[in-house]
Design a binder for these strands. Structure first.
Length: 419
RNA sequence: GGGUAGGUGCCUGAGUGGUUAAAAGGGCCUGGCUGUAAACCAGGUGCGAGAGCUACGGGGGUUCGAAUCCCUCCCUGCCCA
């Protein structure tokens, strides 16, 4: 199957430059393609999964991915979809971020080569390596002259920024710099395809045009539909606005599983297609049901997504913890060590530690005030027993137990173990 | 460089000397209904057990009392150059 057809079936294609031409290129043999990553965070997050899947998918078809960390472009700042300028990020932070992201990408991409039947090895590059060396006047002369200010001002991104807010010159240059990346990769790696989210369409076309104008080269581009939640948010954040990080230290695998299992009904099929490698027929079968039965499909989605990000073992743990916590019948057991756990020292329990403190320590309340409020609203329980007063000593509640299950609201749990 | 309008809580945005921990909406949280979904309904939403403390760009001042008045610095939009 031609990769383009597969991507279409899976709903990855929103816009494409010369579909037939690209199909023909894929037939000829390994094609080098790239996607840029914005390394402004310390870890990749669920919002990045869309692009990661694109990279991973095409590599499984035997093509050669370049994951491009935007260490240089991050210093310029992409104005796309923003109404105000980005904060300037420190160079040291950027370097650290790039290093962390590299490790994560290795889970999805094969940097050695050959894992999928003779595929080429993936490449990770950082555009800071060439962008920082650019000289201003030669850049203006060789690259700048290919960009029309009129055209740029007409694009949605810049128009928006001109209308509401402001645009400084650094950001105005973002398109040139990103276009230059593509040109650089075209020249140095014979990279012929760039992918990204649909919000990047005009930026990516800037690169395609630049390559044609500067070198007379013919290159391609695909952007995939931006996935937004039911409420119009971009993916990759929890309701609270917390990032769904891929780093297990920053966002536990159990919570990662929960993030996916809580997918909106309407999005389950889209997610299965875009975020797993499950076969089409199987997806069809999973999503052919209505109502509550759809939860089965969500569990598959959550399992696959978690297994990909954190390994099968972690996915299994998350799944079994979920089962014991949500599947009514059996009472979740505080003895189940697979549950996310907070440890509290015996000596503290013997001291003045209150129940409110325990909830705070377990990260289930921001402060004692919040714990009290939650209790008043009937949202707190200890081993499935509602608590109304949190100003009592934790030790008294505990009795002779050395582990309890604290619960805040219906969905948030923490096992607390006394050590 | 000149002129002008601004900078308020997670966000939008009221408020121009005390009754303002700061209207309203959104978001978020809890409860209800459910299917750990969506929609809907109710309550909550700075910290603190409390006295109280901290908050309206930064700093300084006037006043019994300031987000509100004055000075100064920083930042942003718009117009002119």
């Amino acid at each position: 199957m031609n990769p383009v057809d597969y991507l279409r079936q899976r709903g990855y294609i929103h816009d494409i430059v010369d579909e037939e031409g690209l199909k023909a290129e894929f037939e000829k043999g390994p094609l080098t393609y790239y996607i840029g990553f914005d390394p402004t965070g310390p870890s990749l997050h669920a919002g990045h999964m869309a692009t990661i899947m694109l990279l991973a998918t095409l590599q499984r078809f035997g093509h050669r991915p370049i994951a491009l960390a935007g260490g240089g472009t991050a210093m310029v700042g992409d104005p796309t979809g923003r109404t105000s300028a980005r904060e300037i990020i420190r160079i040291e932070d950027l370097e650290e971020n790039v290093a962390g992201i590299t490790v994560q990408l290795a889970r999805y991409l094969d940097f050695e080569g050959g894992r999928f039947d003779g595929n080429p090895a993936a490449l990770l590059l950082d555009n800071a390596d060439w962008l920082l060396k650019l000289e201003y006047i030669p850049f203006l002369r060789d690259i700048g002259r290919h960009f029309s200010v009129n055209e740029m001002l007409a694009t949605e991104t810049y128009r928006n920024r001109l209308e509401e807010g402001g645009l400084n010159f650094v950001e105005f240059n973002y398109r040139l710099v990103q276009g230059y990346d593509y040109l650089h990769l075209y020249r140095s790696e014979n990279c012929r395809l760039q992918l990204g989210g649909s919000d990047q369409w005009s930026n990516i076309l800037g690169g395609v045009d630049l390559i044609r104008r500067a070198d007379g080269g013919k290159v391609y581009a695909i952007v995939s539909p931006l996935i937004t939640t039911q409420t119009g948010e971009k993916m990759g954040k929890t309701g609270k606005g917390l990032r769904v990080w891929l780093n297990p230290q920053m966002f536990p695998p159990y919570d990662y599983y929960q993030y996916w299992v809580n997918t909106d009904d309407a999005m389950v099929e889209t997610y299965l297609k875009r975020f797993t490698f499950i076969r089409n027929e199987e997806i069809e079968e999973l999503t052919s049901v209505q109502g509550e039965a759809l939860r089965g499909a969500k569990r598959v989605l959550a399992f696959e997504a978690t297994a990909m990000a954190h390994g099968v073992e972690e996915a299994e743990k998350a799944e079994s913890a979920t089962r014991s916590l949500f599947s009514g019948g059996t009472l979740p057991s505080a003895g189940d060590t697979d549950l996310p756990t907070t440890q509290i020292a015996r000596t503290e329990v013997d001291g003045e530690l209150t129940l409110a403190d325990a909830f705070v320590r377990a990260d289930l309340a921001k402060g004692r005030g919040e714990a009290r409020r939650l209790a008043q609203q009937g949202g707190l329980s200890v081993d499935d027993e509602k608590v109304s007063d949190v100003n009592v000593l934790f030790g008294d509640i505990l009795g002779d137990r050395n582990a309890v299950l604290l619960r805040a609201g219906k969905k948030r749990f923490k096992r607390v173990a006394i050590v």
